[in-house]
Amino acid sequence: MRPKVKICGLQKPVDAQYVNDAGADYTGFVFYEKSKRNVSCQKAKKIMEKIRPDIKKVAVTVSPDAAQIQILQQMKFDIIQMHGTLSAEALSAVELPVWYAINLSDPKEFAEKTKDFLDLPEKLQQKITALVVDGANYGGGQTFDWQKTQTFHQTEGIFAGRKFVLAGGLHAGNVNKGIQLFHPDVVDVSSGVENENGKDEALIKQFVACVKEEAKERKER
C-alpha cells in the first residue's frame, strides 16, 4: 500500500485545482506569520472551498493557543498540525485529530524533542494520531540526516498506533528513497513542489506520480 501524499503550504485558489488533479490525499495550510507560506483565514477558506471533499485539510500551526485552535476548528479543518510548543491548553481545546511535528537534524535530539509529548497526561496524548518528522528548520526545504536516523521510528514507543509522516526537503528526486528507508504512512511536501511563484502544477503531479510508481514497483517485486 502506497503512502498517502500531503501537499503543504497552499496559498492560491489555483493550488486547489493542482492538488485535485494530481490526486493528493491531504492538503496543508500554514497559519504562522513568520512563514512565507502564511495564509489568512479568509484566503484559506476560499481555497478550501475548491478542494475535493475527499482530500483531508490540515491546519499547520506553531505553538498555537486555545483561541487559535477554536478558530481553525470552526473553519472545518480535518486535522490540526502542531509545531513548536505542545501545550496542554491547546490540546485540551482540540476536538480534531492532531499531528505533532518534530524538527529533527540528529537522532540524539529525538528524545528531547518528544519530551513535551511524554510529559502530557495520557488523555491528551491520545489526541495525537500522527507524528510529523521534519527537517531541522520548519519550512526550510532540507531533509534531516536520513542515514543516521533511518531506524529511530522503529524503536520508539511514541509511534505505536500513530501514523508516521515523513517531511522536510522531499521532492520527486528523493521521495522514493525516503519511502524505501522509512516506510512512512504519509509523505509531506511543500518547497519541493514550488517554483519562484509558488506551487507548481507539473512538480505536484510529478511528485504524486513518483509515490504511486514506487508503490507499484514494490508490489511487483
Rank of each mutant, 00 (worst) to 15 (best):
C210G: 05
S35K: 10
S87R: 04
V193A: 07
V98L: 12
G135V: 15
I69F: 03
A160E: 14
L170P: 02
K212P: 00
Q150D: 11
E201T: 00
F152R: 10
P64D: 05
C210H: 07
Q73E: 14
K108N: 13
L86D: 00
P53W: 09
V175A: 09
A44P: 05
Q180H: 08
R221G: 01
S40Q: 06
G140K: 09
Y32D: 00
W99V: 07
L96T: 02
S35R: 08
M1W: 05
G157W: 08
K123P: 02
Q150N: 11
V175F: 07
T143W: 01
A202E: 07
G169A: 11
E49W: 04
M82C: 08
G84E: 04
E213F: 03
A101M: 01
L166V: 09
K56C: 03
A59G: 07
M1N: 05
D185T: 08
Y26V: 13
E201F: 12
K76P: 11
Q126D: 10
K177E: 15
E33V: 02
F110H: 08
D106I: 08
P53C: 06
I158R: 11
M82V: 12
M1T: 12
P13Y: 07
Y26G: 13
E122H: 06
V193P: 12
Q70H: 13
A215G: 15
I55A: 01
I71H: 00
E196Y: 05
M75I: 08
F164K: 03
F182S: 08
A59M: 03
D185E: 09
E194D: 02
L120I: 12
D78I: 11
Y32Q: 00
T114S: 14
K57I: 05
V132I: 13
V39F: 04
G9C: 04
